[in-house]
Amino acid sequence: HNGKLCKLKGIAPLQLGKCNITGWLLGNPECDSLLPARSWSYIVETPNSENGACYPGDLIDYEELREQLSSVSSLERFEIFPKESSWPNHTFNGVTVSCSHRGKSSFYRNLLWLTKKGDSYPKLTNSYVNNKGKEVLVLWGVHHPSSSDEQQSLYSNGNAYVSVASSNYNRRFTPEIAARPKVRDQHGRMNYYWTLLEPGDTIIFEATGNLIAPWYAFALSRGFESGIITSNASMHECNTKCQTPQGAINSNLPFQNIHPVTIGECPKYVRSTKLRMVTGLRNIPSIQYRGLFGAIAGFIEGGWTGMIDGWYGYHHQNEQGSGYAADQKSTQNAINGITNKVNSVIEKMNTQFTAVGKEFNNLEKRMENLNKKVDDGFLDIWTYNAELLVLLENERTLDFHDLNVKNLYEKVKSQLKNNAKEIGNGCFEFYHKCDNECMESVRNGTYDYPKYSEESKLNREKIDGVKLESMGVYQILAIYSTVASSLVLLVSLGAISFWMCSNGSLQCRICI
């Protein structure tokens, strides 16, 4: 991952900044910058967002509201009850120091605090018919004063009620008058409520006091790749198909172990950190130390980045220098085999997901714990399936590479015959000098055995068991695999060879 928040398929997220979902939807004055928000790819909250409900109280069923919003990608904020005409018999300019803005008392931008007009609070009834052709999110509140005197001074009615009804919602609220500790300079409380109004449905408000009335509502448009994440990451000019709280993932790998919460087309989250597919040879310690064997393909974004291909070729060293050249036929066979294998694994496992966190309130801790156990169970199954699949494929890959290298080895052996000696570690020792032209003939299969047989015969008789390297004779190393990324691999195959001279070296080696 890149540690950044990015656009998702070209669409920017909605960053709530210092506000949370509650503050944004109710219209906390400190969240005025969010009022123009219309569309987004996903919503970003920060872990310690401080601006929620400015007048103390709870947004009821907040967790369910977050779940609903996680599939919303755009909205239209509109005046559901026009301020100047909807409440002619009531005062609608209630403000509070708890919702101060720029040093002055204020109130929510989407709600109206209705109080008595003169000395009376006549029963009010108002309704709205949803003609938007889509779901409408309606929010309101109920004020709970701290004393009967406060109730009387604001609403005149000691036994007030609030009723809200639609086809799918029907509740009646009565204020709970009680002494409470002071929070944000208030002994009173406000509880906030919401409902989704279906197209064509009607919502009716009736009250004799204590109503925090809707002013603006939201017509919602769903987008199934949307979601809500909690993150401290910063926004950058970048684009992605998959976003996590820790950063964007741009990967076609089937798995990731970065974060379980994802938005967009994302690899499946697994616990494993070692889900690797081999593309090189079986481990040979001396070669492995030099980083030549054991190439791997990573299938977990965050564990290993991208696929690494092994390729086969020849390396030689003689009086004229040293050089490398790919054996294109065996390399292409290996590439085709690995590509098919990788595609097979991805096809089997690479279903892209959006995974969002589930919200539970403080009273639902047991449910949250149960949900976590269920999620953990599914996660263990996914991890096991992934590891088992790759384990089985790896064994076949190792066998496949062994065969490829063996074929190259036999190709060289059949040409050199007794003009060189096998020394048991995949290397041959020449009994004759071999210049670049000679080396090329070994690589392309045109090695002239009779041409060098007499010199080889004489050297075999002279050496008589002495280690060949100390006599200045020449080696050919018969097994060799270097490691390159897919891009470098293609470039390498396009070149005939490249040279690395070893000044004054008397050794001649050709490596497979």
Rank of each mutant, 00 (worst) to 15 (best):
S231N: 12
S234I: 12
M235R: 11
H236C: 03
E237A: 10
E237F: 11
N239A: 01
T240K: 03
T240S: 14
T240L: 01
C242G: 08
Q243R: 06
T244P: 02
T244N: 10
P245A: 11
Q246E: 06
Q246T: 14
S251F: 06
Q256A: 05
N257K: 08
N257H: 05
I258P: 03
I258F: 01
I258M: 09
V261E: 08
T262Q: 09
I263W: 02
I263G: 07
G264H: 04
E265W: 02
E265M: 12
C266I: 10
C266Q: 09
K268A: 10
R271A: 11
S272R: 02
S272Y: 10
T273M: 15
L275I: 15
L275V: 06
M277S: 05
M277G: 06
V278G: 05
R282C: 06
R282V: 03
R282T: 07
R282Q: 05
N283C: 03
N283H: 08
S286L: 09
G291D: 07
L292K: 00
L292F: 06
F293A: 03
G294K: 12
G294S: 13
A295K: 09
I296G: 02
E301G: 02
G303L: 03
G303Y: 05
G303Q: 03
T305W: 00
T305Y: 09
T305N: 07
G306Q: 12
G306L: 04
I308M: 10
I308E: 07
D309K: 08
D309P: 01
G310L: 04
G310Q: 14
Y312A: 01
Y312L: 08
G313V: 00
G313L: 02
Y314P: 01
Y314I: 04
H316T: 15
Q317F: 08
Q317P: 00
Q317G: 00
N318Q: 06
N318F: 02
G321T: 09
G321L: 11
G321P: 03
S322D: 09
S322Y: 10
G323K: 06
Y324S: 01
A325S: 14
A325D: 00
Q328P: 00
Q328N: 00
K329I: 05
S330T: 15
S330R: 00
Q332S: 11
A334R: 05
I335W: 07
G337E: 00
I338F: 05
I338L: 13
K341A: 04
K341T: 07
K341H: 07
V342G: 01
S344G: 09
E347W: 00
K348W: 07
M349T: 07
M349H: 00
M349D: 10
T351Q: 13
T354A: 07
T354M: 01
T354E: 01
G357A: 06
G357C: 02
G357W: 04
K358T: 06
E359D: 12
F360Y: 14
N362M: 10
E364L: 06
E368G: 12
E368R: 08
N369K: 10
N371H: 09
K373D: 08
K373H: 11
D375C: 06
L379W: 11
D380E: 14
D380L: 02
W382T: 10
W382R: 08
T383S: 08
E387R: 01
E387H: 09
L389E: 15
V390K: 14
V390Y: 03
E393M: 09
N394Y: 06
N394I: 09
N394L: 01
R396P: 05
F400A: 03
H401R: 02
H401S: 01
D402M: 10
D402I: 02
D402G: 08
L403M: 15
L403F: 14
L403W: 03
L403V: 09
N404D: 05
N404S: 06
K406S: 03
N407C: 03
Y409W: 08
Y409G: 06
E410T: 14
K411G: 13
K411V: 06
K411Q: 13
V412Q: 06
K413P: 07
S414W: 10
Q415C: 15
L416G: 07
K417N: 12
N418S: 13
A420S: 02
K421C: 04
K421A: 14
E422I: 14
G424E: 06
N425Q: 08
N425H: 14
G426L: 14
C427E: 03
E429Q: 08
Y431I: 07
H432N: 00
K433S: 14
K433M: 08
D435A: 08
N436M: 05
E437W: 13
C438S: 03
C438A: 05
M439S: 07
E440G: 15
S441T: 15
R443G: 03
R443Y: 06
G445E: 13
Y447R: 04
Y447K: 07
Y449W: 08
Y449K: 04
P450S: 10
P450N: 01
P450V: 11
P450I: 14
S453P: 00
E454T: 09
E454Q: 06
K457M: 13
K457L: 08
L458H: 09
R460K: 13
E461D: 04
D464I: 08
G465P: 14
K467N: 12
E469Q: 07
E469K: 12
S470F: 12
M471G: 12
G472T: 11
G472S: 15
V473T: 08
Q475H: 04
I476E: 01
L477E: 10
A478T: 13
A478Q: 07
I479K: 10
S481W: 10
S481D: 07
T482F: 12
T482M: 10
V483G: 02
A484L: 13
A484Y: 03
L487D: 00
L489D: 00
L489E: 09
L490Y: 04
L493H: 00
G494A: 14
G494D: 02
A495W: 14
A495Q: 11
I496C: 14
S497M: 14
S497V: 07
M500L: 07
N503E: 00
G504P: 01
G504T: 05
L506H: 03
C508T: 05
C508R: 04
C508P: 00
C508H: 03
C508M: 11
R509I: 11
I510S: 00
C511L: 01
I512W: 01
I512T: 09
